[in-house]
Simulated scan of single mutants.
Amino acid sequence: MGIGDAQVTTPTAEDLETVAKQLGRAPRGTREIAARCPSGHPSVVQTAPRLPDGTPFPTLYYLTCPKLNSLVSTLEGTGRMKEMEARLAEDEELSAAYQRAHESYLAERDAIESLGTQVTAGGMPTRVKCLHVHVAHALAKGPGVNPFGDEALEMLRDSWPSGDCA
Rank of each mutant, 00 (worst) to 15 (best):
M1H: 10
M1T: 07
M1R: 09
M1P: 03
M1N: 07
G2Y: 08
G4Q: 11
D5I: 04
A6F: 08
Q7E: 14
T9H: 07
P11M: 04
T12R: 06
A13N: 12
E14F: 00
D15N: 06
E17H: 11
T18Q: 10
K21L: 14
L23E: 13
G29Q: 06
T30M: 09
I33H: 00
A34V: 03
R36F: 00
C37K: 00
P38S: 14
S39V: 04
H41S: 08
P49Q: 10
P49K: 12
P52H: 11
G54Y: 12
G54C: 13
C65H: 04
K67C: 05
L68R: 02
V72Y: 09
L75Q: 10
E76T: 02
G77E: 13
T78I: 06
M81P: 00
M81Y: 03
M84T: 00
R87I: 01
L88N: 03
D91M: 06
D91T: 05
E93V: 11
S95L: 02
S95A: 15
A96R: 12
A96F: 01
A97H: 07
Y98M: 04
H102C: 02
S104K: 08
L106S: 04
L106T: 08
A107M: 10
R109W: 11
D110V: 06
I112K: 11
I112R: 12
I112F: 08
G116Y: 10
Q118W: 10
V119Q: 14
T120V: 15
G122M: 03
M124A: 11
P125G: 02
L131W: 02
V135I: 10
A140H: 07
K141R: 15
G144Q: 09
V145R: 07
P147L: 01
E151A: 14
L153Q: 04
L156V: 15
R157F: 07
R157D: 09
P161G: 04
G163Q: 05
G163W: 03
C165M: 07
A166E: 05
